[in-house]
Design a protein around this nucleic acid. Sequence first.
DNA 1: CCAAAAAGCTAATGGAATTAGCCAAGGGTG
DNA 2: CACCCTTGGCTAATTCCATTAGCTTTTTGG
Lengths: 188, 188
Amino acid sequence: MPRAGLSPEVVVAEAARLVDEVGPGRLTLAAVAQRFGVALPSLYKHVGGLEDLHGRLALVAARDLGTALRRAATGKAGADATAAVAAAYRSYALEHPGRYGYMLRPRSGDEEHTRASGEILEVLGGVLAGYGIEDPGTVVDAIRFLRSALHGFVELEISGGFAMDRPVDKSFKAAVRVLDLALRSWSA
Amino acid sequence: MPRAGLSPEVVVAEAARLVDEVGPGRLTLAAVAQRFGVALPSLYKHVGGLEDLHGRLALVAARDLGTALRRAATGKAGADATAAVAAAYRSYALEHPGRYGYMLRPRSGDEEHTRASGEILEVLGGVLAGYGIEDPGTVVDAIRFLRSALHGFVELEISGGFAMDRPVDKSFKAAVRVLDLALRSWSA
DNA sequence: CCAAAAAGCTAATGGAATTAGCCAAGGGTG
DNA sequence: CACCCTTGGCTAATTCCATTAGCTTTTTGG
């Protein structure tokens, strides 16, 4: 029997692809194994089980989203930065709805996930810097608000929560506009 | 064997209580049956299965949240209404994190859920009316923005996404303040 | 009082996760 | 080159859950 060439990274990457297709909550080790043409228990040589796999997906999502946001934000400031980061956030979530759904459910005590999340927050903090928001408490409030709006929007969009007869793109544009507005006048 | 006095409503209510305790994704028919001291298959006399139960929880959540918001909004306008509705939204989600997690995952084609969601949107629309937002497209945009911010905030809070050293209450107050600000200047 | 619907039950099936333990592949060392 | 031992696959067995089928008892309405 030739070997399948698995590794934790390969397994997680395939699981991520799979979950983006079938949706979060429908990820099974059985389906992952099938994709590799491998028996289910073989996966346990690379990941610790289903829970562990979920946690690894959370890490992948947080990391990839963080780098996407970082890329989008570089060289921009103010409204430009807000728009670019928001668009990147939405794009990532829409293109990877499965893994995105796991992002907020890391393995408890996952150091790396904490770091990856910190990267996301740092990018958002960088956006805020362009608005002259300085006071530490205020920065946290603004980051939380920005993240809430972005997360809420994409999750509602992914789950089909925007059923009214109006292009979601337009609503997103409007949301970005008003986010910029809110940030500009935050200190006031 | 005496009867357990089950009914669809009773089963769903108990499942809702259970899922608020154990968290969404950890709801099993086995656990529900155990709560009633009943064999698992007995539940199938009242609900159509696990998927069906999920959908019913989604309906309960949408309905209850809708009435909570409606109550909070009555007799208020402008910033008061925004604050009251936002607080009610957050309270409901924090007190019922399990069922809240199912709210956006109705059985496909569930008429009643659509109606219940419509009630929520109507309340939010009522809040917007107090800000003089009139243009239909704009109203939809604003409703979506408001809902995104609220949903995103409570979901991040529930999932432990607010780890930074700052009381979440303060951040929520700030979010409500800036939401009011955004709505006031939406037309501008 | 009886019949039939409703509400429980047990039994059987199937799928998924997990654990244990076996065996071959293949890489490094003598 | 041969050997060993780590690694990565396998099968088998267990457990848990969901689901379906079919039986029995309760309840209720005529």
